[in-house]
């Protein structure tokens, strides 16, 4: 599903080169719920940006869903993001002038879906994330947790191969964070959705079936573990 080899990212800050990633290699299989963890500055967000095609590595190879994505043109990368990837941002990143429903169906609209089709799909997903009654509310009328659930619904609307989530609970309280993580776990379990999530909260670890630990831009280690998604952890939300 994802094969990364020697991903390197160097930022040129004036005369100084800052190495955010120093040659990261790993593989992620379809249907996995993977956590990328590490302390602040470890390079986890940089890695997620590269995996989500929001940034380009300085060096390395990256194959996503069988495609050498680093060889794609800008336009092809945009299309690839639209059709095969979902991205959930730390601060929700909703379009403020659109309602919850419109935020969700926008990418379906771009894909050329008919009005009936994109409305039906968006409503279904909004119901899945438990916001069916908030469809016509704009961003400022939604709480942080609701906004993040809309963002997740938006990431899922085109049924992407992989959903990337960049610290999606960073701005939420613990209770709301748990709701969001439970939602991700359910999506992974019930839909078999591949999810790659960045987090630095240790208590999130139990949701991930595999954790890639980063330190100073390098993979420090990978650990397979029991996870909420698989119903292996007490207190998980297996239905």
């Amino acid at each position: 599903m994802i094969t990364a080899e020697g991903l390197t990212r160097i930022y040129h800050m004036g005369a100084v080169d800052v190495r955010a990633l120093g040659g990261v290699s790993f593989a992620i299989e379809r249907g996995e719920f993977v956590g990328i963890m590490g302390s602040s500055g470890s390079g986890k967000s940089t890695l997620l940006h590269i995996l989500g095609l929001l940034d380009q590595p300085t060096a390395g190879r990256l194959e996503v869903d069988g495609v050498n994505v680093l060889g794609l043109s800008d336009r092809e990368r945009t299309r690839f993001r639209l059709e095969r990837l979902g991205y959930v941002f730390q601060d929700y990143a909703l379009i403020s002038e659109l309602t919850a429903l419109e935020n969700i169906y926008l990418s379906s609209l771009v894909r050329g879906a008919s009005r009936d089709e994109y409305l039906r799909t968006a409503r279904e997903i909004l119901d899945e994330v438990g916001l069916g009654d908030r469809a016509d509310h704009q961003q400022y009328e939604l709480s942080g947790g609701e906004q993040q659930r809309v963002a997740i619904a938006r990431a899922l609307v085109n049924r992407p191969a992989i959903v990337f989530a960049d610290e999606p609970c960073a701005n939420l309280d613990s209770a709301t964070s748990k709701t969001i993580l439970d939602l991700f776990a359910r999506l992974n379990r019930e839909l078999g959705q591949t999810i790659v999530m960045v987090s630095h909260e240790d208590w999130h670890r139990r949701y991930f079936c595999r954790v890639i630990n980063l330190k100073d831009g390098l993979v420090e280690g990978t650990e397979e573990q029991a996870c909420v998604s698989h119903g292996d952890v007490p207190g998980g939300t297996k239905s």
Partner: peptide
């Protein structure tokens, strides 16, 4: 700018 960046991130072409 931020919204434009988000639109691009979710797969909307700059020309649109």
């Amino acid at each position: 700018r931020r919204q434009i960046g988000i639109l691009k991130a979710i797969g909307i072409e700059p020309r649109l």
